[in-house]
């Protein structure tokens, strides 16, 4: 019997578009820009498409929030090697700081969100500094603990509104500002991070993941590099938190809910870890899916789990990596 195996070969157009000559033909420019344009135009037109379904516009906002958190998880886990389960930590800190600025100090919304993003990121980085020498699962555990810790502190001491949370945050001036703020910020962070990880400094971070001892031996402080990475990740997380607090006009302990840690991770798994776009694609699938499954009541978790399991078993590489391969390569059967 003849043995056959599948062979993967780069498409001609992929090879042609690798150099500067790609700009010489419209077809090749489209090949490069196509997927990016689909994403950008798709995201920007979502509010118009859903004009008649205001409920789903809210879902789009939440979807973008989860995308940002998933992006920060993907960056930390796959480019720096820090598995951070603290998505909820970033969101909670960002949300509460935005509430403090907006309600207690009565800063307007366009000051409180950026300020909460930066202050929250600094605070999160400082809190995580002692854990940075930890690696792998130990870092994951500590970051998982922080949101629980803050929930209990707020409950027990009855500070910052206690279990009721802080209410009365100012809302966005109108619905379009509300939507385009998060959509544009998400796209900016996505393309910004994609650029960042290919810069020299991004390569150093990948070096920290591959072999941190050699980075130290090159005279680079890994503590500094890791804290820089955590800062960048928490900027994304805290922005998401500050946004969601203003969206709900409320900041409570449910911002520290485990959802904000777990769903982004599931998104990255489904979308494909290490691609950054995968984090967005995963959220675009998972968040609306979880809304649709709301009709099933508590049974939705079961369906959710089944879908996740199927993806992990049959397409463990993730959707984005699969799509990229199909886009760039073709397959054929050859004799062994």
């Amino acid at each position: 019997m003849e043995m056959m195996r599948r062979e993967r070969i780069d498409r001609g157009i992929k090879v042609r578009t690798e150099g500067i000559y790609a700009i010489s033909s419209i077809r090749e420019v489209l090949y490069l820009l196509g997927p990016r344009l689909i994403l950008i135009v798709g995201m920007i037109s979502l509010p118009f498409i859903l004009e008649l379904a205001p409920y789903w516009k809210r879902v789009v906002n939440i979807m973008c929030v989860y995308s940002l958190i998933a992006l920060s998880f993907d960056f930390l886990a796959n480019y720096v090697g820090l598995v951070c389960l603290g998505g909820a930590f970033f969101v909670g800190i960002g949300g509460y700081i935005a509430a403090i600025f907006n309600v207690y100090l009565s800063f307007p919304i366009y000051v409180s969100i950026p300020l909460a993003t930066i202050c929250g990121a600094i605070f999160c980085t400082l809190m995580l500094l002692p854990c940075l020498p930890l690696r792998g699962v130990y870092f994951a555990i500590v970051t998982l603990m922080y949101p629980l810790f803050f929930t209990r502190v707020i409950e027990a001491l009855n500070i910052l509104g206690g279990t009721n949370g802080i209410t009365g945050l100012s809302s966005f001036p109108n619905q379009y500002v509300e939507e385009y703020t998060i959509i544009i910020v998400t796209l900016l962070f996505l393309f910004g991070m994609r650029r960042f990880v290919t810069q020299d400094i991004g390569l150093v971070l990948r070096g920290v993941k591959d072999n941190d001892q050699a980075v130290r031996a090159s005279g680079i402080s890994i503590a500094y590099m890791k804290s820089l990475a955590v800062f960048i990740a928490s900027v994304m997380g805290c922005f998401a938190g500050a946004y969601i607090a203003h969206l709900y006009m409320w900041s409570g302990i449910s911002l520290f809910a485990l959802d904000f840690s777990i769903i982004p991770i599931a998104s990255v798994v489904i979308g494909g870890g290490g691609t950054l776009v995968g984090a967005i694609i995963g959220s675009v699938i998972l968040v609306p899916l979880s809304e649709i499954l709301r009709a099933f009541g508590t049974f939705r978790i079961v369906i959710y789990c089944i879908i996740l399991t199927l993806v992990i078993v049959f397409k463990s590489e993730g959707l984005m990596i699969y799509l990229q391969r199909k886009y760039h390569q073709f397959e054929r059967w050859v004799k062994v």
Binding site: L203, V204, D210, S218, G219, I220
Partner: peptide, 20 residues
Amino acid sequence: RPYYSLPAYKNLIIPLWSPR
């Protein structure tokens, strides 16, 4: 243990980026 996910020449970007 090289930086195994990077191409060989990109391995040197890390020491070349170092402050020294």
